[in-house]
Structures are given as C-alpha cells and as structure tokens.
C-alpha cells in the first residue's frame, strides 16, 4: 500500500429521500493528481462539500492522513492542510485581492486573532501576499475591489486563496468553469503548474484537461463510484464511455 493522504469510508449524504452521495469509499495518494469526473448531478460537488466539512455526511467517515476528521469544522480541516476552491466563486466581494490573501496567510500563520496592530504592520505576511498574487498573475489588480475583477481573474484569486493556506491536499472544483476562452489558458497553466508536493483532487468536465492533468481518475455516477483507475484504464473502459464520454462525444 502506498501513502494515502485522503480517504473516505462509506460516505453517504441524503437530501430528504434523494441520495446525493451513496456509499463512497475513495482513496487519494500523496502527491497524486486525482480527477473526479461524472455526468451532471452525479454528486461531485456534494462529495467535495462532505470532504471539506461544508456539509455533514449522513453516514460514513473522512480521514486525512489517517486521522478521522469527519466531525471537524471546515476551518479546522484547513488548519490540517485540506482546502478547496469552489465551482462558483466564493470570494469576499468587498475586499481587494490583497486583503483577501493577506487574511488567508495571517490565518495560516496564526496571527489573525491579533487586534492591536494594523495588517500593514505584518510586513512578512503582506510581502508574501504580494508575491503570491504576482505568481498568480494578479499583481496588477491587487488593489482593486474583487467584485469588479474580470471573471478569469476572480477564478485565479479563488485558486490563489486556497493556495495561501499552503494546503497539502487541494480540492479543485471545476477551476476553469465559466472562464471565457481568452482567460482560460491562464487558469489552466496555473493548475498545471501547481507544486508537485501538493496532492490535488480535481473535479472537471473538460476531458482534455482531465486527461492531460490527472494520473488517476474516479468516475462518479448517481452518487456512487462507478469506476476507478489510471487514465489509460478509464479511457479504455467501455462502460465509462457509455455513461459519460458517450454523452459528451
């Protein structure tokens, strides 16, 4: 057995009578580029919500580096190195990107409870934020209000923000969703160049991106894991083609 970072056992989530996540047992290896695919409504985002504590599961457990984190609040999971981006931007609209990232870094460094010095007083935090924003191509807009940024820039900030927490496991929920074609390239190259020591679980519809990025793929259908394997195995699996690729072809 190789090194497993993230694992779920028998994870279930019901909304009334509807089972959105049905008995999902998933393992993600350290450093993996793991993709989670499936048709619309397969329960991909619900699964991410369960992993990150946005929703509590109806049954089952989530383990991060061998420890049961099922009952932990989101912010505690982040502290332990598990974070995510959102399919639909979840940003602080009135903040500037700089403020946003500074806060995330301050929280990571455990200084965000301090209420006596201005944020500007923590030069190391601010410098790191400036540096991070530059690396994500946001240097020129770091002082603008987030809500007025172009969508592609907001997407980048979404990823930069998750990154500011220095995750060991990063869940990307359709990072390129809704990004216009001309800004898309920038987002994709960022995703492709994420540091190798960060384990990435990617939810994506774009098959080109999935096949070029992932080393391992899980297919989710109707809330359950339908198939799992290497890229080659999944690409060759006729059942997957039938339920999923066939749809897109």
């Amino acid at each position: 057995m190789s090194d497993i970072v993230l694992e779920t056992r028998g994870l279930k989530r019901r909304f009334g009578a509807f089972v959105a996540t049905n008995d999902v047992s998933l393992t993600v290896e350290r450093g993996a580029r793991h993709a989670l695919i499936g048709p619309n409504g397969a329960g991909k985002t619900t699964l991410i919500n369960l992993l990150t504590g946005v929703l509590p599961p109806s049954e089952g457990q989530v383990f991060l580096e061998g420890e049961d984190i099922t009952g932990l609040a989101s912010f505690r999971r982040v502290k332990r190195g598990l974070t995510r981006t959102f399919q639909i931007n979840q940003l602080f609209e009135t903040f500037t990107p700089l403020e946003t990232v500074c806060l995330a870094i301050a929280e990571r460094e455990g200084i965000a409870h301090r209420l006596w010095s201005a944020m500007a007083g923590y030069a190391r935090v601010v410098e790191e934020a400036g540096d991070l924003l530059a690396r994500f191509g946001l240097a020129s807009v770091m002082g603008e209000r987030t809500s007025i940024l172009p969508y592609g820039k907001q997407r980048l900030l979404e990823i930069a923000l998750a990154f500011a927490s220095r995750p060991r496991v990063l869940l990307l929920d359709e990072p390129a969703a809704g990004v216009p074609e001309d800004e898309r390239h920038e987002v994709l190259s960022i995703v492709a160049d994420l540091p190798k020591d960060v384990t990435v679980l990617l939810i994506e519809h774009d098959m080109d991106l999935v096949f070029s990025f992932a080393t391992r793929i899980s297919v989710l259908v109707a809330g359950a894991v339908f198939a799992e394997g290497s890229v080659a195995e999944i690409a060759a699996d006729p059942r997957v083609k039938a339920v999923y690729l066939g749809e897109n072809a």
Binding site: F75, R84, F92, I111, R114, M119
Partner: peptide
C-alpha cells in the same frame, strides 16, 4: 486599531462570506 488589524479583516470576511471564511481557516 481593531478595525484595521488582521482580526478586523477576519470579521469582515465572516460577514462577507462565512463559508469561504471557514475555508481559509477563520474560526468564526
């Protein structure tokens, strides 16, 4: 001073988007 501190910023984050605030480990 409180308003401009990291603490003040984290409060505004909680107000602006509590879900995201949790996801950058703000203990709301």
């Amino acid at each position: 001073r409180i308003a401009f501190s990291p603490f003040g910023l984290s409060l505004k984050a909680i107000k602006s988007n509590p879900m995201r605030a949790g996801m950058i480990s703000v203990p709301a």
